[in-house]
């Protein structure tokens, strides 16, 4: 199944990727080439196969409800582009 430029625009929106018009054409082409190739999986009948949910049969990995030291706030904010009032600052949301 192919994707249109419109589809790619939607994918870019869902992925929060700003694309130029030129980008859109390029990605449409390369995504379609990949999708064409991936279509080869259709050859294989997997109707009766259980999907592999987890790599190893690991389960019930827990920690006890015990406090651990949090980071200093300085460290928490150290990598941020903009901070203020002990918090991360972001531009207008709506």
């Amino acid at each position: 199944m192919q994707v249109s430029e419109k589809d790619v625009e939607q994918l870019a929106f869902l992925s929060r990727l700003d694309l130029t018009a030129e980008d859109k054409a390029v990605y449409t082409k390369s995504l379609n080439a990949i999708l064409d190739y991936l279509a080869m999986l259709k050859k294989l009948d997997t109707a009766a196969v259980e999907p592999a949910a987890h790599v190893l049969p690991i389960k019930n990995v827990f920690r006890e409800d015990k406090l651990r030291q949090s980071l200093d706030r300085e460290q928490v904010l150290a990598n941020a582009a903009e901070v203020g009032e002990g918090a991360f600052v972001v531009p207008r949301i709506v």
């Binding site: 827990f62 920690r63 006890e64 409800d65 651990r68 949090s70 980071l71 706030r73 928490v76 002990g86």
Partner: peptide, 30 residues
């Protein structure tokens, strides 16, 4: 293992896991 206490100063109960720092992995509280 960060505290769940309510009403503390912003970003003082935070670690690599709950801050989503690259590479951090968490383990479920039983």
């Amino acid at each position: 293992g960060c505290s769940t206490e309510f009403g503390q100063a912003p970003n003082t109960q935070v670690c690599p896991v709950c801050l989503g720092l690259p590479g951090s992995t968490g383990v479920l509280n039983k």
